[in-house]
Design a protein around this nucleic acid. Structure first.
Lengths: 261, 261
DNA sequence: GTACTTATGTGCGGAACCGTACATACAACT
DNA sequence: AGTTGTATGTACGGTTCCGCACATAAGTAC
């Protein structure tokens, strides 16, 4: 049985909210918010709360209704299913390209999965009612959110395929690259035990996989800090699943804001 | 390498269309169509083409844009991903509770997966443009389709989890029950090779799993015909994934039309 | 009835991963 | 410096599933 580190902290340490008016630049760091039509953004801006998202913090509990959605900026959120016996598996990962809480506009209000902060950072919290109002307008924001949802669907589907057919080593590469795509730098703060929980495998398996990558000079790590040294090396080892997902995200979503802006 | 039987026939044998006006009862056999508001149904009715869906027929090819959506009535459609090396895995299954072609209203127009007839039967074809027009109205039909999409998402997510953690035997039970839920009777026309392709496992593995179930008196089969003798017996052996998916479908979708109606 | 095709059954060596147990190493605190 | 807790490394037997090879059986075509 696997126990997720940090689950406990979620109850005791609610993320702190900050005033939002000064954070316009940070708003633009989330690609969905950045692509929002001006009219919608103007309505949302005063309601967007920038919050810290510490590692392990649980945003959504399985099958529980939440009244907020989240737009990560620097944090990465993992959607994972926890089984009756405690085993877990990651369904998808959400970073600054997306939104956590699609069930709140899809109409179901909850899902059987849990949303946990996989990589600490920040994000914006927004009342679901406000988001839903804009969504129901059937305008550009609606289409944006639906296209994002389709990209997310592809990620989930490809996770199913990858779980079926590919080796732990390949899945580890996929996981590293998906995380890397959602981070500013090349360093992940992430123990092998946490990675094992996400992938739904033994911790020892991750150790062995990570050692191979380290010996090949692609990564280096020590006690929960993983540095990616050779990204293209990872891309050579990864299964096709990574590229399939990436291609769909690129096809369906607005391009990220470039550095110079 | 696995090759899907029937893939060939899809090119050579387009399904035949029939006049629709006399098929009102059949329209009601699809739960989404049945739950459609009268106003929308009135618009769609003259455009719904009832077609035969023979085993193996390919409705959607991976990443290709199709201009129709499909509402199965007695057929079952399998959404599956075919890998570069020919291996395949089922992502989800769609029966009379759903629609094939969600990408056409989600905004992406295509997905990296293929839609294949897993169990021969009938269904309605509708031009995507007509469906899209109603969807964009942001009315009851929209909510219906979005809730269905969320149910489908749950099925995909649970498939990923099941692929990760559960035994071939359990997955076989899950697959049989999912199919059974979408069929009128208790007999599936389905070879073990086809099941293996759906589950993404060896054919021999399905043979062994099916033999166990037969010896336990839960099913009987011969040359592509599987009769389920003891449904509750299957439910005792299946993993939690089946119940999770079923619960979400029941929660999110309108109740099926009962026999007496 | 015979030949052919398709579906199912069986056996075997090997690979990947699991569960468990334990060893080592680094870091923080006292 | 020593203690403690957490992260990582190693080892080993067991299970599941794979790839392959081949046998049997049930339909189909001639």
């Amino acid at each position: 049985m696997l126990v997720l580190h940090g689950t406990k902290t979620s109850d005791t340490k609610p993320p702190s909210a900050k005033k939002t008016t000064v954070y316009f630049d940070e708003v633009k760091m989330n690609r969905l918010l950045a692509a929002l039509p001006d009219a919608a953004l103007k309505l949302w801006l005063p309601k967007l709360e920038l919050i810290d998202l510490p590692l392990g913090h649980v945003l959504y509990e399985s099958s529980a209704t939440e009244s907020n959605v989240y737009f990560p900026t620097t944090a990465i959120i993992s959607l994972l299913y926890v089984m009756e016996n405690g085993d877990s598996a990651e369904i998808a990962v959400v970073g600054n390209e997306g939104i956590v809480g699609i069930a709140l506009f899809m109409g179901g209000n909850s899902t059987p999965s849990r949303a946990v902060v996989q990589s600490a950072g920040r994000g914006f919290r927004l009342e679901a009612a406000i988001m839903k109002k804009e969504f129901d307008r059937a305008g550009p924001a609606t289409h944006l959110l639906l296209r994002y949802t389709q990209a997310l669907i592809t990620q989930m589907a490809q996770t199913a395929v990858c779980n079926r057919h590919h080796s732990l080593d390949q899945q580890l590469c996929r996981w590293l690259l998906l995380s890397l795509d959602r981070l500013a730098g090349t360093e992940l703060v992430m123990t092998q035990l946490l990675i094992a929980n996400m992938l739904g495998v033994r911790r020892e398996g991750v150790t062995e996989g990570a050692m191979k990558l380290q010996k090949a000079g692609l990564i280096s790590y020590s006690r929960g800090r993983i540095k990616v040294l050779d990204r293209s090396g990872l891309e050579k080892r990864v299964c096709e699943c990574y590229a399939v997902v990436k291609r769909e995200y690129d096809r369906l979503l607005p391009r990220p804001i470039v550095e110079s802006q």
